[in-house]
Each structure stands twice: as C-alpha cells, then as structure tokens.
Design a protein around this nucleic acid. Sequence first.
DNA 1: AAATATTGATACAACGTTATATCATCTGTC
DNA 2: GACAGATGATATAACGTTGTATCAATATTT
Lengths: 339, 339
Amino acid sequence: MVGKPKLETVAKEAGVSVPTVSQVLRGTGRISEKTRKKVLQVARKLNYVPDNRAATMRLGQNREIGFSIQNMANPFNAEVILGASDLLEDEGFLISVLDARGDPDRQVKHIEAFIGNGRGGLLWVPALGTPERTFDLLRTHRVPTVTFLRRSAFGDFDHVGIRNSEATATATRYLATLGHSEIAYLGGTEMTSVRRERIQGYRQALLELGVGPARVFDSNDTKIAGLQSTLDLLRDNPEVTALVCNGDMVALGACLALLRSGRRPGHDVSVIGFDDIQDAAVATPPLTTMAVSPYQLGRRLAQVLLERLKRPDMPLTISEVEATLVIRDSSGAPLSAAD
Amino acid sequence: MVGKPKLETVAKEAGVSVPTVSQVLRGTGRISEKTRKKVLQVARKLNYVPDNRAATMRLGQNREIGFSIQNMANPFNAEVILGASDLLEDEGFLISVLDARGDPDRQVKHIEAFIGNGRGGLLWVPALGTPERTFDLLRTHRVPTVTFLRRSAFGDFDHVGIRNSEATATATRYLATLGHSEIAYLGGTEMTSVRRERIQGYRQALLELGVGPARVFDSNDTKIAGLQSTLDLLRDNPEVTALVCNGDMVALGACLALLRSGRRPGHDVSVIGFDDIQDAAVATPPLTTMAVSPYQLGRRLAQVLLERLKRPDMPLTISEVEATLVIRDSSGAPLSAAD
DNA sequence: AAATATTGATACAACGTTATATCATCTGTC
DNA sequence: GACAGATGATATAACGTTGTATCAATATTT
C-alpha cells in the first residue's frame, strides 16, 4: 500500500500481467468479464491513477489543452475560458491556464512548458512584443495553436478575434447620430493589434462623417486609471462631449470622473464602453457599450481548435466575431433634446 | 528539420552522443568548453525543447505546480495566484490553473490529471462536498498539497486560510460601537467552512455584546444577487440598520439596493464588506470592509508549499491570516451624530 | 479424432530522458 | 618511457505505459 501504485502493482495484486491491466483500463483487447471485474476492483482499491506522461509519450497525443493568457484578473478572460472548456470537456479534453502577465519572457517559458509536457493544443493571447522565435517554437513542434484577440504578425496560426474596427466605427457613428461632433477616443496604452484596429475604426468613422478632429488619449484599462485620465482629458479639452472607450472599465472610470467633476454622464458628456462586462448593466448610469459575448468567443475558440485537431491539414481559419451596440443611459439622448 | 527535435536529433547534428547533449543542457558531467558551445548552438538552431514527461518520469520530480480553484472569474483568486506564482517562479516552479467551478466530479478529474501528469505539488481550494476519496487519491500518490480557504474535513493537509470568525466579530463589534443593535448577516448560500466560520464570528459577537437577534440571509456572491437580496431583506425586516456582508460584491449590491430604495448607505443603513476588492475603494460610497490581501495570501500559500517540498516530513502547517477593518464611508458615523 | 477457429492472456519493444558506470585519451610525474 | 591521475565522452539501464505479435487453451467444425 506504500508508494505510488502503477500497472505492475495492480497486476500483481490481481494476479494477472501488466498488459492485461492496461487493456482492461483502456477497454482494448480481448478480456474475459471475470478478469475485467477483478482488475477494475483492484485498481480502484489501490487508488490507481495511470501515469499520463508515460501514456502520452507512448501514444504521441495528449488530451490536455493549454491556455496562455496575459491577465488572469480580467473577468472577460474567465468567461472565455468557461466557454472554451465547456466545449472541450465534452470531447474529453482539459484546459489548464497559465498567466504570463504580458511578459514575453515569462510567456516563452510557459510555451516551452506546454511543448515539453506534450500538451495536445494551445489557445493563446500573444503578449505584446512576442518575438518570432516564440512562434517558431510552436511551428517546429507542430503544436495545434489558435491565437485569440491578438493576431500573430506572422499570421500562420488559426485565429479567433473581434471585428474591432467595425465596432468602434459603429460606436462613433452612433454618437455622431446623437449630434456629437467632438468625439474623443479613450483607453489603452500599448499599441496592441486590438487597440490599433479600434482606433482605426474610430478614425475612419470620423473621416467618413466629416466630423471634428480625431483625439486619442491613453489610459490603463482600469476604473481608477479611467477616472484620472478623464479628469485630465476634460481639463485640457473642455470641448469634448463624447467618449468612445477602449474598454468598459475605462468607461466606468470616465463616468465616475464626470460625476465627481459635477457633470452628468449621458447629459453633459456621452460615454460608450467596450465588452459589456457584468457591471456595465448595473452601473450608474447603466453603460452603453459594444457588447461581445466572451462565453461565445470561448466556444468559437474551442471549436476552431477541435477542428484543427481533427484535420491537421485544414486550411488556416480566421474567425472574427461581431460586436453589437447595446444602448443604455451613458450615451444619452440626442443633443438637441438634452440641451 | 521536419519532426520534433529530440536529444538524438541534436546529438547527430552536433556529432556527439545523446548523453553528452543531455549533460550539456543540464549542466552536469564533465564537458569541454568546445563541445558545450557547439551543442548549445545546435540545440538553439533546431528549436530543441526537452520533453519534460520523459525527464520527470526518470527523475521522479516535477517543477510544475497545479492550482485547483472553484471560480476563475473571481478577481480575488487571480490576485492569490499572482502572489503564489511570484514566489514559486523565483524558485523555478510554474503554476498552471484548473477551474473546477465548484463541481466535485470535475474537480476529481482535475486532481487525477495533476497526479497522472506527475505534478510536483498542488494548491487547492476544495469544492464543497468533496468526497473523502479525492483526498485519498492525493494521500496515496503523496502529492504535496496545501489547501486554501476551505479546510479539508479530514484535516491532514497543510492549510492556509483567513481568520474568518475573528474578522466578522470585529466587523459586528464595530457596528455595535457605532450604536447599531439590529445587525444582519448577508451573503453566501452554501455552508462552506468559510461561511460557517464567518457566521459563527458574527453570532458570537452579538452574543457577547448582548445585542439584537442574529439574522442570517442568503445571497450569491455577486452584485446583482446582493442587490435583489437586500431589497427583499429590507422589505421584510425594515428594522435592520446594519449589514455585515459575506463579500464585497454582495456589499456593493447592498449599497446599490439602498440607493435605489431611497436610502443612503452609511446614513440610513451601514454596510461592511469582506475582502477589500479593487472596486471597494472607488465605489459610491467607498466601502468599509474587512481587508485581506489576496496577494499576501498567495505568497503564504507558496511559502508553505515550498517548505513542504523541501522537508516532506515536516509537521502539518496550519496558517491563518488576519483580516483588518478598513473604515470608509459605507459604515457611516456613530448613529447619534448621524440622526 | 484431427484440423481449424476462437478466445484469453502474455512477451516484447518503444516513447525520450538521465544517473551511473565504463571507457578512451591526454597530462604530468618520477 | 611507464604509471597514476585527471579529463572528456559514451553505453547501459531504467522511469511507466501501450500496440503488436505471440502463445496457450479452449471451442467448433469436418
């Protein structure tokens, strides 16, 4: 009873050979009902758990999937993982998550660990500034990989993302419809592909509409940073009457800033967020936002990976999910009516 | 260049034997500087990544740690993981996270995966209703395990938790100091060891103070649930003037409910939360709460595991971290002054 | 009753790595 | 120039599992 039980332990106890036990447990080969029963009973009694390392090494495939993300604390990611694992678990896979916190060095360690442990696949939000070598590793080792949100610059991996530029264009157009002409973009600091696309959509819409200058302001994607940035922004640019935000957290921070400086969100300044996080609906005021369902994104992500696993030679899949404008109070009524 | 590179691939390319390559990569054995250079260069060129399965199987130890949690979406957990991985990464370990979502069946699959992959250790928030067999598995396979927050009923694992009953007693006593006598407890639904201890501290304090009846109300740990539960609570128990909450999310929901029903949090009803999540400080009103640093908890967790790994025969460690009362506005001023 | 088919179990080799033991080569000493 | 000692590299076996080939013992056919 001492020491980890292995096939040999079970085999001895059940009075059969090692391969027999293996066959019973895997349900392969021809085994009589009697020995089957016996082996299963002994295996259970001894708390036997097969060594997946030995098995996958022999078999050359693993049903464990890795998910490499950059910020575990973001509830959006948590929802994505939920969606992905719901689908993958049904197919007998398992998702384990590693948080690289945006650090490419930490990230490459994680990816090496995935490879070194023979993970069966990888879902991945690449860190900003991921060196080509990291992609090379995955290519060399033939790890079925789906990138998420941030597209690889080298572009030869399956990808699931958000139709970012269309989304911010929609938000910007909607604000223009309400009568705004001084519309600023707020949020993000680093130029990820996500932010680049969103700002591009915003600029594009302004251009098409022939409305006011494009103004982009940095801010970290937290409520507190959003609050501070908005206070600064309004001090220096009092003419701004509408904000398209890079994320809901920033947008919520912006609303807080408006309230603190005696302005009413949706009346004096309109605010549109991005993501539709849980808090958006219960905020004061409820937040108008570009909604994407993280759960659905997760499912899509899993779907693409499963297909790739089934057909390794399948052509590259690029899948972009549309965001939808959810109108609540923070964007306000048409300007003429409000004033 | 096709197919995964292994030691043999590198060895052939560098014109040396397999063990030589292994020794260079691990820095063991006597190797001349010349072959060392050559081997490293070739290994890098071929994008060689050692197969950790084969290595750990041979060596019998693994520097990968598993973290099994019940709710990934909780930012508190994310902070804990951050703290734990900061410490563990310095020692060359790696944390991978699995979310069992409170389901003991899913959880046992995860634990079996940890065991089957020979993980070097386990940090674990046991799901409610975890069967003894799950603990048995870990015992049999001698997995160094530290339970977190929820103590195993069978109590033979290292543990890190919060001094829950003292914390809620402190909160309750503070509200009594402010002059409250109708203090309710709000939050949680399932009777986890955490909730049991918190409610016990609340009851204990009321008893010692000789103040009003103990009233405990269920609610899920989300803002929306907290909102609804508080509306119900106040309708049925209008005499309640203070709430000790099971978590900050519930407390924030309670504040929302107060505002919506025309009451002022901190004036008409006092609210104290638990955890001190990021939003607590910027909420309206800023939330009084029992603060525990999830980051510090994570570090402690890692510390205990590292010690256990170093000294497997060390006596059982039970480590409880104190929560501190952070006074903001939601608890209000003394009642005499406020009225 | 002999030949054949069927069933049930086992022996063997391989997955990729590494510690130990072994072997060959070179340096320096008397 | 022979011998001890140091240096540098390799051969071997083992970690636990599983697919294939093999073998023995029945059951079935002619």
